[in-house]
Design a binder for these strands. Structure first.
Lengths: 229, 229
DNA sequence: GTCTATAGTCGGATAGAC
DNA sequence: GTCTATCCGACTATAGAC
């Protein structure tokens, strides 16, 4: 039994290492660019292990997508839970300052995730999938991104006084989230224009400052527009 | 001489067709995913033609980047020229409504370019390069994107009353441009959240409407902030 | 369960015919 | 200048030893 435990845990460990290396190397090189040799070598496992544990390169890629979805869920579920609780316990009209605080928390947490060195590869893969969606995108979106999008959209709708079901409202939400994402997705352009050679703590703080300001200006501006209708 | 002209033009045509196919296929599949066989076949040329005209697959990729930079230049140089002329002929304080109009023109033109079916592959390659920059990104940025970024930044600085050299100002510019880009870069997320199955004319108009509104709210909000300092 | 050796496939580049 | 045929390297997947 001791032997079995050791073997099982060794297998588990091999799987974990393969997954983490896959995250990194798929992130850097994309599905096509990455090779199973490369991933196996980086994970200090032999090439056959990938076929054994994940069936194929594709299987490993999908497992990586599931891993990303799980990470997103873990990262946002506490916030999502407290937002859901807020809406189910607070009574209408919901306190506006509380709603605004939730929106800030959500977007700032998104921004932090994006630049967290431990999650860098994660956002690379998500971006790749946005550009050229495969089956993996469904996993990531439905189990991960959609959580954040829908809550953020609901919060924004209630703050500016719009209908959360309306497409126009969803576009507002998308645009706002786009501000956050642009710092990751157009990272290279940002670096060149600012002359930065990296986005470290200082740069991150500046970005956060600007984002916070933009969120306030935009949401309060939209609120006025919707009120006046 | 007639023969020579014919041959030259045939060669030119082959080069052009290869370039256009490369744009499309590199855009769809990325540098790694695309194959020279695929590109040559799509261009109705033989495989050896790529090596002959562009030296290698890499050479073709760089030529594609140059092609993109040229397209960007062609698309924006009239606007850039009139902006430069505006700043050199108008006297301080520059008429604010004129500046705002230029900003709208720039961003809306950017948005149009992004969704123009003829330019779709172009923005795909740019996005790929933002995620994993190669030598090609330098060509695209320095000869194409930087033109737009710098003029837009100058306009925004003058409108909100900030210093165009300041990093903070550049971050404002980046965030604003990010709103536009997000509709392309996070296209898949947008489609899923709105339930759209494509971004056609109607959807494009809605996006434009929201963008225009956001630009006005944000810039006027920032203007107040900077005034009050 | 784990690993090595290899089969089978495909892609980029090139030699040489026309 | 243009094209076909082919080489060589690299990749995924698998068969079979341990």
């Amino acid at each position: 039994m001791a032997a079995k435990t050791t073997q099982t845990s060794r297998g588990e460990q091999a799987k974990q290492q393969l997954l983490e290396s896959a995250l990194e190397i798929f992130g850097k090189l994309g599905l096509e660019g990455a090779t199973t040799r490369n991933i196996a070598h980086h994970a200090k496992q032999n090439i056959a292990a990938i076929a054994y544990y994940f069936g194929s390169k594709e299987g490993l890629y999908l497992a990586t997508a599931q891993h990303i979805a799980d990470r997103l869920k873990a990262e946002f579920s506490p916030l999502v839970a407290s937002i859901d609780q807020f809406f189910s316990t607070a009574s209408w009209p919901y306190p506006q300052d509380k709603i605004l605080a939730f929106i800030h928390q959500g977007l700032i947490r998104y921004n932090r995730l994006i630049f967290d060195p431990n999650s860098l590869h994660l956002s690379r893969i998500i971006s790749h999938e946005q550009l050229a969606p495969t089956e993996a995108y469904s996993i990531i979106h439905e189990q991960g991104l959609a959580l954040v999008y829908s809550r953020l959209n609901k919060l924004i709708a209630h703050y500016i006084g719009a209908d959360e079901e309306q497409v126009l409202t969803q576009i507002h939400t998308h645009a706002l989230l786009g501000e956050v994402l642009s710092f990751r997705l157009s990272r290279e352009a940002l670096l060149r224009q600012t002359g930065w050679d990296n986005i470290g703590t200082q740069e991150y703080e500046l970005i956060n400052l600007v984002l916070t300001q933009h969120i306030n200006i935009l949401l309060n501006g939209l609120k006025k527009t919707y009120r006046s209708i």
